[in-house]
Structures are given as structure tokens and as C-alpha cells.
Amino acid sequence: MALGPLLFGASSTLLNADHYGVYFKGMPVWNGKVLRRHGDVFERTSRGYYRAHGRADDTMNLGGVKVSSVEIEKVCNAVDESILETAAVGVPPPGGGPDKLVIAVVFKDPQGSKGNLNSLKVSFNSALQKKLNPLFKVSHIVALPSLPRTATNKVMRRSLRQQFSQIGSKL
């Protein structure tokens, strides 16, 4: 999907990135103006309507099943009262193959929660398999003091994916 280049509320610059490269490079021209790339995935239904599927970089393919990070996080956040928030990221393994599901966890009390990551992994797997898909499996849990966020408070899963890919052989 593309948007008209002059959109109220759209950014005009990016910090630490090429604004033109991210939003306009390679996009078609309409009415003499280059269209702006949109970051969400949309599906056109057989009746001609459009259905929004969320951020393009916030979906992953786990064992042939496309799933939204938000769906996984909703289940994981409810597993234990000690969890403040989670971020689900699909990390490609170093040698190729299906993505590994890595969950970044922020605990309400970071001091007392790091010892239970193995039991938390078992709980996450059980909940995900019961509530979403029996094939889903958490490969690794990473405890963080906070999740990386944009200026508008959106979780930067792309940043987490990059970080976890660099330590991929340990996952």
C-alpha cells in the first residue's frame, strides 16, 4: 500500500536513517508525485474491501504459520504476574531455516525474576500452544530492563531482531 506524499502527521525527517530511502525510494509516481511507502500490511478481500494486518515488520513466520507479534505478546503478558511487558521477535538462525521465536521480557521487579527464565519458557510454550497454535515454540527468553522504543512509544522489534540475530548462535 502507498500513501499520497503529503499526509498530515507524516514525518519529514528521520533520525539515524535516510528518510527518502525508507519512505520513497523505488515507489511509483502518481499525479506527478512520488508515493510514500506505508509500513502496515493490508489485504484486499474478494469483495474489494481492505483488511489491516498491522506492521509489516511485526509479523513472523513460525513453522509456516504467519503470526503477529502482538498476538504472541498478548498471550505471554498474561502468563505471569511478574511480567511488565514482552516483545516477540522471529530471529532467523545463522545457518538458515525457519525463524526462532525469541521473547524479550521486562519484569516488574528486575532483581528477583531472572532466575525463573526456564520455568517461564515452559509456561510461555504451554500458553502459546493452547491459545494460538500447537506448533509454536519459544526458543529463547531474554530478560531486559526495558524495551527499545520510538519517540512515539512504539516497540522497536526490528532493533531487537538485529540485536538477537547478532547473538543467534547462542540462541
Rank of each mutant, 00 (worst) to 15 (best):
I103R: 05
E43G: 12
E71V: 11
V79N: 00
F107T: 07
N125L: 08
E43T: 15
V29G: 03
P92H: 02
F107D: 02
L35W: 04
R55M: 11
V22R: 02
G90Y: 05
C76D: 04
Y49K: 14
E85Y: 01
V91A: 07
Y23C: 01
P94Y: 10
V41M: 13
R47I: 01
F42T: 08
R37V: 05
S123T: 04
K33D: 14
A78E: 05
A52E: 14
A104C: 10
D57I: 08
F124S: 01
E73V: 09
K131E: 12
S126G: 07
E81D: 10
F107P: 03
S69T: 04
L62F: 11
A104T: 00
S119A: 11
I103H: 05
V106S: 02
A127K: 06
V89S: 08
N118E: 12
L101Y: 08
I103W: 02
V34G: 11
V91S: 08
E85M: 01
P93S: 07
K121W: 08
D109C: 05
Q111F: 13
K114A: 10
G96T: 11
F24L: 09
V122Q: 12
K130R: 12
G96Y: 12
S69Y: 03
G64Q: 07
L128R: 05
S119F: 09
Q129G: 04
T86M: 01
S82W: 02
R37Q: 13
A17V: 06
I83W: 01
L35Y: 01
Q111C: 12
R51G: 03
L117N: 04
Q111W: 11
F124Q: 04
G64K: 07
P94M: 13
S46F: 06
G39L: 11
P110F: 06
S46V: 12
E43P: 07
Y23E: 01
I72P: 03
S113G: 09
N61L: 12
G21T: 12
V122E: 14
R47K: 03
M60H: 03
P98W: 14
F24K: 03
G112V: 12
K100H: 14
N16G: 10
S68D: 09
Y49A: 15
V65G: 09
G95W: 15
R36F: 07
W30M: 13
V79L: 00
G95A: 15
V70G: 10
G112I: 08
K121R: 14
S46I: 10
S119W: 09
S69M: 04
L101D: 04
L117C: 04
G63Q: 12
L120I: 02
P98H: 14
I103F: 06
G54W: 07
Q129C: 06
H53I: 12
Y50M: 15
V91N: 04
V67L: 11
V105T: 09
V65L: 13
G112F: 06
K121M: 10
E71F: 13
G97P: 11
V79D: 00
V91Q: 07
K121Y: 05
V67F: 04
D57K: 06
D18K: 03
D80C: 11
D99E: 15
P98Q: 14
G95F: 14
G64I: 04
D80P: 06
G95R: 15
Y49H: 13
E43Y: 15
C76W: 01
K66Y: 13
A56Y: 06
I72S: 05
G32I: 08
G54S: 04
P94N: 13
S68E: 10
Y50Q: 14
N125K: 05
L117D: 02
R55Q: 09
V75P: 01
V67G: 07
A78T: 00
E85V: 00
